[in-house]
Amino acid sequence: MSRHQHPDSPPADGLAMGVGAYALWGLLPLYFKLLQPVGAVEIVAHRVAWSLLLVLAIVALRRRLALWRSLLRQVRVLRLMAASATLIAVNWLVYVWAVNHAHVVAASLGYFLNPLVNVVLGLLVFGERLGRLQWTAIALAGAGVAVMAQAAPGGLWISLALALSFGFYGMVRKLAPIESLEGLATETLLLTPAALVYLVWLGVAGGLDFGQERGTDLLLMLSSVMTSVPLLLFAAAARRLRYSTLGLLQYIAPTLQFLLGVLAFGEPLTTRMLIAFALIWTGLAVFTAHALATHRRRRPAPAV
């Protein structure tokens, strides 16, 4: 720590990594819009296959292949990673489809809901107790979802699918005794056979977009970078920042997605949708204020 740095201030490199990870996730719609002519399943299949090659190279460069192989021999780890791989595949597929079918605002709502889904899962799965403010936050979010169901029922399934799939994904990853890099390598390894079978079938059927245009091919290959880099930045930031700081940064991604949907892509935003977002944002504010207050109370007093 720098001599002039306040002990409670986050490390500058960790903060930059955290902001970078969430900013990249928030700007992903711009990337997938470039691939709009390509089907969502093909995009995800390429994302999986090319990510496996990139992550395996990173694992090898970090000399962690032996550790990874030892983890692959553990049945419990494989079962949990099979579940997490399925959940993240569903999340990726819904997200790419939503972006390329003009539902970026609905997708952003899903990621705004995600922290509150995590609170509910903590209650139901891990037996965590909720305070009055947390229940208030959940009630506000529930009211927002109810309003959204009336305002834009066609997009609500997207929001709920993204929030639930990513919430359960986080829960499974919390239970799995594996680090983020090895976890991503395992998930992509498990998903790659299905991805390759689909791409081969698509090629035989004459519907494969890969190989038709050099620019599209390059974008599909670079999807591995767009998948792996934010995750690695996030993992590095998580080791350097307090959990409360990381929790605040997570709102960067859906905020950017929301702004892109409305300002860049011209998606409609009705009064009822604004009311739904206002209720959910208020719930998030209550939840965040409670989390920060709890963190301050639990922080040990400085030594005299």
Rank of each mutant, 00 (worst) to 15 (best):
T288M: 04
A82W: 02
V44D: 08
I158L: 06
H4S: 14
L233R: 10
G206K: 12
Y95K: 02
W68S: 03
G155S: 12
V48E: 03
I252T: 11
L78G: 06
L259W: 03
A176K: 03
L231C: 02
F234Q: 04
L219T: 00
L259D: 09
A98Y: 09
L123P: 01
A16Y: 00
W281H: 03
T192K: 01
A236T: 11
L28M: 08
V99I: 13
L279W: 04
T192L: 13
P302W: 07
T216D: 10
S180Q: 15
K174D: 08
V225G: 07
K33I: 12
A85T: 00
L78W: 15
G39W: 13
L191W: 03
V48T: 05
M171P: 01
A21H: 06
R64K: 04
R297P: 00
G131W: 08
F287M: 07
Q150C: 07
Y95T: 09
R73F: 06
F32E: 00
P268D: 08
D13K: 13
E128N: 07
L24W: 07
P115C: 03
A293H: 14
I138S: 03
I88H: 05
L162K: 10
W201I: 02
A107W: 15
M171I: 00
I158H: 11
T271L: 13
V204F: 08
Q74I: 14
H103W: 08
V59W: 01
